[in-house]
Design a protein around this nucleic acid. Structure first.
Lengths: 239, 239, 239, 239
DNA sequence: GATGAATGAGATTTCATTCAT
DNA sequence: CATGAATGAAATCTCATTCAT
């Protein structure tokens, strides 16, 4: 029975309604290429090889189709990223992971990313919609990681987690446009490392070896030692 | 009488085509609120209080109107920012200025920013257009500042200027959306400082005063400790 | 039942898109009556009994509709005329046929003719279009016939075939306007004969029949005169 | 004073309202190039260098402007051709003249001719208008010439004058299109001669030596001669 | 579920014409 | 007479959506 369920489930996942999936894919391409408004249902149907009306057997409206398309790309991304992030204990590593994962998504499915970047936010009810939830869940992973890092003392206490989130995801989007429009490409590993280094360098707590503070602390230590040592002569319990 | 005529003339000069300007403003609002595609020329005309066709007396096409609107906002911004940046010698300060100026623009004219962010890049010929030029000129200010800073040794030699540009302007855009859509606001001065600090901390070279000095200071500390320790036995004021 | 189905199928074949055909017909009428520019798509749709937009389900543009309309009339005409002309050996007969066929077409479908005459040539790209090809093919039949006749010695060697073509088809067009606009009609057979006679008389080589007859008769006259004169001597004995 | 009046008059004639004339000329060009419907009043005004509304100071409507334009070209042509034709006595020469004059007009002002050919006839009230009158007057010159020729016995009695008119003017129009659209030019003198020769050959009465009539006349002559000759011997010395 | 045709509302754009100045 | 702005009607075309088959 488990097997049966699994297979059914597998079927549904891999090919639930082949037409519906084909429409979703065609819509994703069309929306990503021309934008939601300029991509017509007729064009999507043409890409699939069906007639316009047939689209409405699977999706109640064009707008619903957009939501579906975005969800089908975004949901797995959010799920997998959430899972991946929650398995990493150290905030620094989690930030590193989130940045790399975000860039990876961009490399894997630029059209999907373009959709989210340019179309998801264009509707009035965006912030009440399911997509907005996904977006919030996704970007809050970074906020949480940074907060966590602040708590643990890895990141500066005055770090603004929202700022880091805007910086990272905004930066990725900015790169995305260069990559999507073909002007300027990026190398995943290198970019991930550089971006991570920059951000971490910007928010990491004064590391033992890098800031001025430690030196003064050492000086303080030295002072104390000196004080102690020079006071030793006056130390009572001298044998 | 001559004076009167002159004043009228002056009025005409300072406000040469009040209708054209009114259209530009209405278009900016409409485009920013609903997006280029969903804002109709009819609506823009209604905002101005003229009929649809009258818009075409002043602008040859809807698209041209968009270009005009964006340019009228972007061009002054680029000019003033270029002027401001070129007057600042130190890269660190220039980066600080560029970040603050960018956020300032966002505070000053959110609708204009929204337009650039969400509409300027939606046309196929974007990268061949005048607006793309403005955009390149604008963001290259940051790239140049960072490059300059690398040359002078203020920024790490392995800093990627394009990455910094994407990070900063992408980050600002990301904030912009939050601010524009009303969800989440930001305080200019605070945000500018935090963003600047983060980025500068991320790219600034291990400061000459923090790396070199500490060593000598540590040596000094060591000397002092040594002195303290070695002097103990040879403590003079022995009773 | 199979038969019924087949017949239906046959009907469908012979009248595959009744709406498209209805549009073509309505467009032909409207274009012919008011001219391309002054006949609106809305009017054409109204004639068919559908809404404006429905026309665009069948024809991508108004202009394309015009082309289609012209082609659907012109192509068969050119084909059939070409076939008819090529079956006739003697140039004189071929010219006769072409003239009659041209006038016949005018009688058969004046609206179609009006379209070709007044609308086909109004577009800038006319001479690069398919319709221009048809036109050239059509009128070159006359040019070829005349050339052939010159070769064979039926027509004067100094005949200008292009001139004949312009004369005949221009003349037919001129008549067409009279006929179409209702002012002045023409009787097919009579006009065809007169036109043919005029043109042939104008280009035929000094005809064996026209020269020979009078000559022989003159010869006869001469004979008689000779007879008379020569009989004079044999006539003295007149009392 | 007489001088003043004359000069004013002269001015008015040579430059009655320079603006009005400029508009007429610009309109002629625009209408001829793009057709009446596709040439806008704005474009005509632009060619003149005035604003749209100014056109209406001189012409009550666009349509009226067209009429004016056509008349200003057609009227002189009709007048001069009428005068020229009426000065020629012999029908053959008159036909020759009319053909040459028509082709000449085409050479002199192709745009004007194009207007008449393609625009004058497109209005519903064409046949009630002044332009139609001009057209009738013009083409009837040929009809009259042919009729005259028939009366005098120069042209065949079965010649159809209307047919000749359609042939000649239709033929000229046909050539005109080739010439106007740039495809195929023509040499005035040669074409005029060829066209005239063809038409005259087609309608001229069998010349003294070619037809039946002369033959019978010759026969009559022969009869008389015969009579004379035979009677002569018996008739010489009549007291 | 799919088809093909149709709908109807709305988009951009054009343009002859008017009118206050 | 000319200007410049505006009008309002109409034109072409697009498109999401519906529906009988």
């Amino acid at each position: 029975m488990a097997t049966t369920t699994r297979m059914t489930s597998a079927d549904e996942v891999s090919e639930p309604h082949s037409t519906a999936q084909a429409i979703t894919r065609a819509a994703r391409d069309a929306f990503a290429e021309k934008g939601y408004d300029r991509a017509s249902v007729a064009e999507i149907a043409r890409r699939v090889g069906i007639v316009e009306g047939a689209v409405y057997r699977h999706f109640p409206s064009k707008r619903d189709l957009l939501h579906q398309v975005i969800r089908s790309f975004y949901e797995p991304l959010v799920e997998s990223t959430t899972a991946g992030a929650s398995a990493i204990e150290w905030p620094v590593d989690r930030v590193r992971y989130l940045i790399r994962r975000g860039l990876q998504a961009l490399t894997d499915d630029r059209l999907g990313c373009r959709l989210i970047i340019s179309e998801a936010r264009t509707f009035d009810d965006y912030y009440e919609s399911e997509i907005a939830d996904l977006s919030r869940r996704y970007t809050s992973l970074m906020v949480d990681a940074v907060r966590d890092g602040i708590h643990r003392g890895d990141f500066r206490p005055d770090t603004n987690p929202q700022l880091v989130r805007d910086l990272v995801y905004g930066g990725i989007e900015h790169m995305a446009w260069g990559a999507i429009t073909g002007h300027g490409d990026f190398e995943l590993d290198l970019t991930a490392r550089q971006l991570t280094d920059l951000v971490l360098a910007g928010i990491t707590s004064p590391p033992p070896s890098t800031t001025a503070d430690p030196t003064s602390r050492l000086e303080a230590v030295a002072d104390r030692l000196e004080a102690v040592l020079t006071s030793t002569p006056t130390d009572p319990e001298q044998p």
